[in-house]
C-alpha cells in the first residue's frame, strides 16, 4: 500500500480533532462547525491535546481501489477492538472532509457499512474510538469521475 504519509496524517488528525472535540461535549451532540470546518489546521490544533492516535491493522476499511463514479462509493469499516464508542469516516480531498460520525452503544458491533461521495482521488480513513484511544485505518481510492461535483 502506498499511502502518502502526509495525507494520511492529515486525514487522521482531522478526525482526531473532531473526536476530541466531540468527546469533550459528551456523546450526545457534535459541536457545530464539525462539518462546516473547511480548515483542517484548526481541527488539528484542537486535536493535539489528549487523544492518542495510531494506525491499527485491527481497523479494516474496505473500499474499492478504483471508483468509476465518486457519487456512490461503498465503504465499510470492521474494527476488532473493545469498547468502541465512535467511528468517524474521513475523505481527505472532499470539500467537507468529515463524511460521518457514528456513535455506537455497546450493543452495536464495531462495524458499519455505507455509501459515500468522493470528490476526487483521495485517501479515506476510518477513525475508531476505543478505550480512549483513536485507532485508524485508511485506504487510497482512485476516483475516475468525482462526486460532490462542482458543476
Amino acid at each position: 500500500m502506498s499511502i502518502s504519509r502526509r495525507t494520511f496524517v492529515r486525514a487522521s488528525a482531522i478526525g482526531a480533532a473532531l473526536t476530541a472535540v466531540a468527546s469533550q461535549r459528551g456523546n450526545a451532540a457534535l459541536p457545530a462547525g464539525v462539518f462546516s470546518a473547511a480548515s483542517p489546521a484548526d481541527a488539528i490544533r484542537t486535536a493535539l491535546g489528549n487523544v492518542t492516535m495510531a494506525s491499527d491493522e485491527r481497523v479494516r476499511l474496505t473500499a474499492p481501489d478504483r471508483a468509476e463514479n465518486g457519487d456512490v462509493v461503498p465503504l465499510s469499516v470492521d474494527a476488532d477492538l473493545p469498547n468502541i464508542q465512535r467511528i468517524t469516516l474521513v475523505a481527505d480531498q472532499n470539500p467537507i472532509p468529515v463524511i460521518a460520525v457514528f456513535s455506537l452503544a455497546p450493543e452495536v458491533e464495531g462495524f458499519v457499512a455505507t455509501r459515500v461521495k468522493l470528490a476526487q482521488t483521495c485517501n479515506v480513513a476510518a477513525l475508531v474510538d476505543s478505550n480512549g484511544k483513536v485507532h485508524t485505518g485508511s485506504k487510497p481510492v482512485q476516483v475516475l469521475i468525482g462526486g460532490c461535483g462542482g458543476e
Binding site: N27, L30, V34, F35, D71, V72, V73, S76, L89, A91, N94, I96, V98, I99, A100, V101, F102, S103, L104, A105, E107, V108, E109, F111, V112, A113, T114, R115, V116, K117, G147, C148
Partner: peptide, 19 residues
C-alpha cells in the same frame, strides 16, 4: 444504540448496515 451525524458526503439514498 446508534447515532449517525452526517455531512452531505453520504451518497444519495443513504444505505447503512450495522450489527
Amino acid at each position: 444504540i446508534l447515532q449517525g451525524d452526517w455531512s452531505s458526503g453520504i451518497a444519495r439514498n443513504p444505505y447503512l448496515m450495522f450489527k
